[in-house]
Amino acid sequence: MNIFRFFGDISHLASIFILIHKIHTSRSCRGISFKTQVLYVAVFVTRYLDLLYSWVSLYNFVMKVFFIASSCYILYLMKVRFRPTNDPSIDTFRVEYLVGPCAVLALIFNYGYAVTEVLWSFSIFLESVAILPQLFMLQRTGEAETITTHYLAALGAYRTLYIPNWIYRYFSEGYVDPIAVTAGLVQTGLYLDFFYVYFTKVLQGQKFELPA
């Protein structure tokens, strides 16, 4: 554990709390892609299967359980509690274009042909693109509530902080995980456009609006 990874994880936690807070206070999940949230549940469940057979640390255990539970809770909020505020007609990204290629990549690139290893790889690849339905929705509507942009910024910060974490680990442990690093770089790259608008507009007090 190093400071980059720690703050990355804290940022990830924060993003989830921001999202739940947004849904509760506005009593609405407007602007949130249900598809992205479903993909996150798939990511956490397939990656954290090792909860059942390996122990890393209490920190690791608590975080994994939290990520699975909170992502399922968000689905509940969107599909049950605040269902009328969820508009599937603007959440149109085709997730099969993400899940299929990720499954193929996981079969090719993994650290061993065991079900758990392939699913772990799959979760890494899927996480790297899981935000796309959300970003696509943002692109379509052209604007977002400020709180939704804070959610995305915290999520993007988490991925960004994992990069110095890997650099740190390379120098301190001489260790590189090529699958995680490659997927992580792609994932962080997807946020670049968003970050640009977030820093130049939202943090200057303006509304998040994309140029027409």
């Binding site: 990830h12 390996s54 975080m63 680990r169 995680a180």
Partner: peptide, 10 residues
């Protein structure tokens, strides 16, 4: 050494 990824990461 087992060929594993950063499984201690989240």
């Amino acid at each position: 050494d087992t060929p594993e990824g950063n499984k201690d990461e989240l």
